[in-house]
């Protein structure tokens, strides 16, 4: 049987069609085929969260979904969210609160934080910690990340 597939999807608003090996996962597709390298590849078995991507409005593990499964989907990466200005306040808060050090986890952390804040406008610190528990950060000790998300939640509530 054919080990390649034809796929068509929207990536950051742009319609793309490609023929790719069926085994290509979504994060490798956006990195190598779309040359969008903001989504990172860490553990490749769903533990670290560095590969977080948004598909049809929900965050997913980019390493645990085949690109072929995103047929017809709206795929958004950190580049898309960043260019659209959707998470400008989160990015600013991460920067100002020292929630970034090496930056490897940051794109995944930002997408996860954004999903939390769209579901829950006033999360407690405990709820923030629980929601980002699927994203490893090896630099910051999380405290500054929780601070930044909490601060943006307050700002957005006005």
């Amino acid at each position: 049987m054919d080990q390649n597939v034809d796929i068509t999807m929207k990536v950051n608003g742009q319609q793309v069609s490609r023929r790719i090996p069926a085994r290509t996962n979504l994060v490798d597709f956006v990195r190598y085929d779309m040359e969008l390298t903001g989504s990172h590849v860490g553990c490749e078995h769903g533990v670290c969260g560095a590969c977080t991507i948004r598909v049809n409005g929900d965050i997913v593990r980019g390493c645990l979904m085949l690109a072929a499964q995103a047929e017809g989907a709206e795929v958004e990466t950190i580049e898309g969210l960043s260019d659209a200005g959707e998470i400008a306040d989160l990015q600013k808060a991460f920067h100002e609160r020292n929630a970034v050090q090496c930056g490897f986890c940051t794109p995944g952390m930002l997408l996860t934080a954004q999903e939390l804040l769209t579901k829950n406008a006033s999360p407690s610190r405990e709820e923030i910690r629980e929601f980002i528990s699927g994203n490893y950060c090896r630099c910051t000790g999380y405290q500054a990340i929780v601070d930044a998300i909490e601060w943006v939640a307050e700002e957005r509530r006005g």
Binding site: M1, A22, R23, N25, E44, H45, G46, R61, C63, L64, M65, L66, A68, Q69
Partner: peptide
């Protein structure tokens, strides 16, 4: 292949190597 959240991990680690995935 349903949600794939266990299967994809085992495929990535090559603990399993099926010839066909039925989504």
């Amino acid at each position: 292949l349903a949600g794939g959240q266990s299967l994809m991990a085992t495929l990535n680690m090559r603990l399993s190597a099926p010839e066909v995935l039925i989504d």
